[in-house]
Design a protein around this nucleic acid. Structure first.
Lengths: 346, 346
DNA sequence: TTGAAAGCGCTAACAC
DNA sequence: GTGTTAGCGCTTTCAA
């Protein structure tokens, strides 16, 4: 169906090598010849075969992109970032979703390798064994939004969640909160660890005791998030603030508070990590830690395209987060900011 | 780097054709030989080259997917649907975002064709000329979420928006509303036409006059949506209900109502098309027309994979929508549902 | 500056 | 059942 290089060559009255030179941009071709070739090609609707080219050059090109779930706002933004960067690089992208399942991820990686992608950008599902052989085989791999400690040599682009959680925790404590619940979001691609550690560390730094009962974790599903939030808020009416470590638990906290007739922020303050669209639509709008999935994707793609040799020093690239203060947090009932400040001082 | 079929053949002590038979699944191979080949392949970490295969078979495989924006909830769901289906088909997918720009779309299509994809699924940006040559060249094309009237022969998978809007309009009128504002969402991939037409038709069918001043449209950006909603609600305090034809205008309506100190649903009822995550988190939760992007993507992918010959009769596949009633709509002030019913009868 | 020719790794006839 | 062989469309020496 499609025209081949041979037909174009014949039509233009030149050798196939010349046509190849015109299209691959390499090698010298006289302007006149180039014109003739281009005209013939246009006439025949010729389109160089990517398959043949990559068979010959042994690099197929294209970037593989693996995210847990394109439906998650952060994942979608990450994909958009990669797409934007790939576009400027002239690369195409192969996308697949791992659902955070290592077995599925392994399959996807396998297929992408067979496709001959020039590099893979992934939010890794967790199993380092999936990646070790890939890296060893020389395929460029860049981790995004999550790194695997077992593979410190693989470049990674992350958001600085620890600092985001620290800011948020300090903000809450500064408002006067002492009994702050931490709703962790573990699961695929998102072990609560970093965020939870940051929460604990900040509290300790501020000399606020960590109430273990108030640190809970949910799997990344609505049900689990809801159960965790409900269990927490029902059992402990003395909680004055909830720090949700992800938008799913944030959503759950808002819903549970409403169910329990807890007014936000009069009865409980709520804040979360991930500034998703609805944070602003909530009533009151939710204070959140914003992190840019687009930036993560864009930088990951840039890194993947860069020559491995001229890459930045090892260690993940940490992108900043931003604390967006809206109306969902207030000093705990019966205390003003001032009193809170005082009580912190003593 | 990677092992070739030749090396595997040598290692297994067989001819390359045998190895090919084992991996392509075609042709008879004795169990013993197959085992030997598989073992050798595993040993060498052999992976058939997709490039060589598609060069030979002249069908590269893979599906191209073009959406306006992966960041839109509906678009993301559509992508997820395609991914799910492609996975079960054993196909990979090439993704790109057109931003609803025909020129960009044309570029993307061009690249995908060069890649030799087996079919393209697209939410078309609007220019039929992009698609005509593709279709003529014999490439499988399936439109999703939007069809091009100029190309009636291209299979399409759509949601039945007209019926969704009709249900919603009837619901609102049934509640007693007469001055219903329609906030259209035009723009990339989403001409308000179908929804607006359904709105008008339903109103007319119900003998409710259409107030032209209350039918406005916004471009699919937050600013434009907000401006449209604000202009409408400020100019016409007598509006009792807002039907937002998309989640962006829905969001704008909620925000503007809050800004204007309009209580929902006491002062205005609000409902929208597209049941996005925040609809349930709003206070009150928003009544919405749900349509499944996942289903659209899944079916589009199935259609693209099906033999063109054994495809269903022409005409788009219409997927159902569902009216999800929540708390954001109520009879207009000073009227009960009963009165409203009465007034409708007269 | 251009053309001829040798494959890249694989599949599909066709022989055995 | 299995091996041999002829390309698929392209890039890339090497000569001319």
């Amino acid at each position: 169906m499609a025209a081949t290089i041979k037909q174009v060559a014949a039509a233009a009255g030149v050798g196939i090598a010349t046509v190849s030179r015109v299209f691959s941009g390499a090698g010298p071709v006289s302007a006149a010849t180039r014109e003739r070739v281009l005209a013939a090609a246009r006439e025949l609707d010729y389109r160089p075969s990517a398959a043949a080219r990559s068979l010959k050059t042994r690099r197929a090109g294209g970037l593989g992109l693996i995210v847990p779930d394109v439906t998650e706002p952060f994942g979608a933004a990450l994909v958009a970032g990669v797409l934007d960067c790939a576009r400027s690089l002239g690369e195409h992208v192969l996308l697949d979703a791992s659902q955070g399942d290592p077995a599925r991820e392994a399959e996807i990686v396998e297929r992408m390798r067979a496709q001959g992608v020039g590099g893979i950008i992934a939010v890794p599902a967790g199993d380092p064994e999936t990646w070790r052989p890939v890296v060893r085989a020389g395929t460029t791999v860049v981790f995004a939004d999550r790194a695997l400690p077992e593979l410190p040599r693989v470049p990674a682009v992350l958001t600085d969640d620890a600092s985001g959680v620290r800011s948020l925790t300090e903000y809450l404590v500064g408002l006067g909160h002492r009994r702050i619940a931490f709703l962790g979001a573990t699961g695929p691609g998102r072990p609560a660890d970093a965020r939870e550690r940051a929460f604990r560390a900040t509290l300790e730094g501020l000399r606020v005791p960590v109430d273990e009962e108030l640190v809970v974790a949910a799997r990344p599903e609505r049900d689990s998030a809801y159960a965790a939030a409900a269990g927490l808020l029902q059992a402990r009416a003395d909680v004055t603030a909830v720090l949700a470590a992800g938008h799913l638990v944030g959503e759950a906290a808002v819903l549970v508070a409403r169910e329990l007739d807890l007014r936000v922020p009069a009865d409980v303050s709520i804040a979360m990590v991930d500034d998703v669209a609805w944070a602003e639509l909530c009533d009151p709008p939710l204070t959140a830690v914003a992190r840019s999935g687009h930036a993560v994707g864009y930088h990951a793609c840039e890194t993947a395209a860069r020559e491995p040799s001229r890459r930045a020093a090892p260690g993940p690239l940490l992108l900043p987060t931003e604390l967006v203060i809206r109306g969902s947090c207030r000093p705990p009932r019966g205390r003003s900011v001032r009193e809170a400040g005082t009580s912190r001082a003593r």
